[in-house]
Design a binder for these strands. Sequence first.
DNA 1: CTGGATCCATGATGATACTG
DNA 2: CAGTATCATCATGGATCCAG
Lengths: 233, 233
Amino acid sequence: MDTARRTQTYGHYCLMAQTLDVLGDRWTLLVVRDLVHGPRRFTDLADTLGGITPKTLTQRLRALEHEGIVAADREAGRREVRYRLTPAGQELVPVLEQLARWGLRNALRPPEPGEPTHPEHLLWALRLKLEDAGAALDPVRWLVRVAGESHVLGFDGERWTLTRGETSEPDVTVTATRTALAKFLTGPPSAREAEQPELTVTGGREAVRTMLDTIAVFPFGPGRAHRGSNVGA
Amino acid sequence: MDTARRTQTYGHYCLMAQTLDVLGDRWTLLVVRDLVHGPRRFTDLADTLGGITPKTLTQRLRALEHEGIVAADREAGRREVRYRLTPAGQELVPVLEQLARWGLRNALRPPEPGEPTHPEHLLWALRLKLEDAGAALDPVRWLVRVAGESHVLGFDGERWTLTRGETSEPDVTVTATRTALAKFLTGPPSAREAEQPELTVTGGREAVRTMLDTIAVFPFGPGRAHRGSNVGA
DNA sequence: CTGGATCCATGATGATACTG
DNA sequence: CAGTATCATCATGGATCCAG
């Protein structure tokens, strides 16, 4: 059974249609998105993708492999399969960012009560918003520890970066449960001043103040203007 | 019947998932794409979208209206309905361009024998490629007349633009059938030198030479490097 | 336990015809 | 022209099962 084939094509000779033939299937861009931060195993993906069924995930991964967007590292003797982005896959990052940028301004809504979240997704959105808002300050590193993972959100003097893992001597450390972090980041910025039950913030008073002020633009604060189109209407 | 509702949502609190909840359904971005060049009627859209069924097109348009991306102008006493992009819809242009830019380098394939094309789609891709390739020269206006429509592809000294309609005193005028234009633009640049059966190019020898040299980057010529991501891997 | 495959249910889309 | 109605098909969701 040719499980590596895409399901449908638009069948037009049209750049956008061809692009969406490759990227437009349900779940496809979310799979890419979760591979942006580094290699992932099948079950890791199934976890952060939430409701995807194994069948669909298999199908998307095979299609993405076939398109040269994803590569699977199958080490002999090991049952783990690590999926990662190829260079062509990495080139999708600006596409995801442009989509997310539009979404920040036009599609973002508050979370439903029991709606599942994943720290990595929240922090990725936060990073983009900081970038988009033109937030600039002295270089900083903020360490976020949650659900057994840790992430570092940092500014290097020019750009904001998000990396998995630890860092020595972070300016601020946030330790929280998933739920608490979600509440913290998706709630109104003013509520972040108060003590949170399952969330602790450590670091110098000055550094904490800076962080809270800086992330106050998330999620609904002002961004910078964007270059318009030059296609006539 | 709530035809304005989206069909499914990912049900995650995740920026990308929410964005794709709005934009990710099949046909949705192609509808937006065909509205980028200006208002269109239902049947115009059905035409350039090729295989879409009226039911699906209605559903997409209702959903896009509901999301504030498309507005419908229904003038009293007139049966025509003109769909156009709202400001939020216009903001999707950079998204489409980023997708197409990726597609130019990673998803573009030669046309299948009888695969339908539409001049506007070809010219849109050509414009993007010229922009992407950094093609620069003195300001020009190239008029393309095909299938009862006309389009002007121009360079204003800084950016490339594509507009519908005529222009006075174009530097070059290309008149062709749909098929001939598709063959001309999707074939190898070298083949554009020869006489084409159903395609005529008029204009000064110098100006024609410049056009042919400039569009030689389409579709597979070199582009400029793109800014990388700053998300750690 | 990971990395799937299989079976069935459902809902989205495709094809075609028809109407205010 | 701008859809609606009806039926067919196929992709996806949901659950379970299985091999290494």
